[in-house]
Design a protein around this nucleic acid. Structure first.
Length: 275
DNA sequence: ATGCCTCAGCTCCTGAGA
């Protein structure tokens, strides 16, 4: 089962590329079972559910006009959909969680049905600059996420957290670690929050496998950033303890970044066996 | 250069992204 995440920077602009990419993966014999999308930049009524349905995908979404917005697509239907963090007042649409397979929160016996998979798609706040109001919001959001996930993981042992985290793990995720030291996406305080998520029992799927050096998921549109591979690895897939042994591969797909009118982010996918 | 692209929208400029 292939599970992917992609910050599309406007689903209105990128819908054809998303449909093309899904079709290309299927043609290559490895169809995408689940896709998390971020930065839809459209309101709920503008979400192209019919186009995805025609492509064979169920969808759930949490849209917002102009900014943010997240969605999950899957080839099977979702249950127990959650939008944003419970108890955290937020005008910004940044998180959507849903269950694939039998709802495992009801304590049912299961029997023949496969264990459920809890999918959490998120668009973490950017933060703009250390010390700014937006940075303070980023830190509050990160703490609310961690607190909620601690409980969520107890209820759903098979859980993935994937999306645009807007945080690098370490200097290997940064094209210019010295020039960007302690700047936004690279600061110690942001990285400590990312480590706090791992401490809940989550694992960076990308680092479970050998990867090419200078593997990034985002490149600035300006100054030929992609061509010069001046990027950051800020999009991630984290796997719970129960899912970690099922992972067989994890890759960044740079090919859509070469399209005309690309997103500034590339999709990232993980392959899980036995699901 | 508080710049350089790209996107949305109170659209021919501005705010936000990362």
């Amino acid at each position: 089962m292939k599970i992917a995440t992609w910050n599309v920077n406007s689903l209105t602009v990128r819908l054809p590329q998303v449909l093309d990419w899904l079709a290309a993966q299927a043609s290559a014999g490895a169809p995408v079972e689940v896709l998390a999308l971020q930065e839809l930049k459209l309101s709920d009524d503008k979400f192209p559910a019919a186009a995805f349905e025609q492509a064979g995908y169920h969808a759930v979404w949490h849209g917002q006009k102009t900014y943010n917005g997240v969605a999950l697509l899957a080839r099977s239907p979702f249950n127990a959909v959650q939008r944003n963090l419970p108890g955290f007042e937020d005008e910004q649409a940044r998180l959507i969680a849903a269950t694939l397979g039998a709802d495992d929160t009801q304590g049912s016996e299961g029997g023949a049905s496969a264990p459920a998979l809890r999918v959490v798609g998120a668009y973490f706040p950017n933060g703009q600059a250390l010390g700014s109001d937006k940075f303070a919001y980023k830190l509050r959001w990160l703490e609310a996420l961690r607190a909620w996930l601690a409980d969520e993981m107890r209820r759903h042992p098979r859980l993935l957290l994937l999306g645009d985290f807007n945080i690098t793990f370490d200097d290997a995720d940064v094209w210019d670690p010295e020039g960007l030291r302690e700047s936004i996406h690279c600061s110690s305080v942001e990285r400590a929050h990312l480590q706090a998520l791992l401490a809940l029992g989550l694992h960076d799927a990308h680092r479970l496998f050998a990867q090419p050096p200078k593997s990034y998921t985002w490149w600035d549109y300006r100054q030929l950033g992609f061509q010069k591979n001046r990027g950051l690895r800020i999009d991630h897939i984290l796997l719970s303890d129960a899912l970690r042994p099922l992972a067989t591969a994890c890759q960044i797909d740079r090919s859509p970044r070469k399209n005309p009118q690309p997103s500034d982010h590339a999709p990232l996918w993980v392959q899980l066996q036995g699901l």
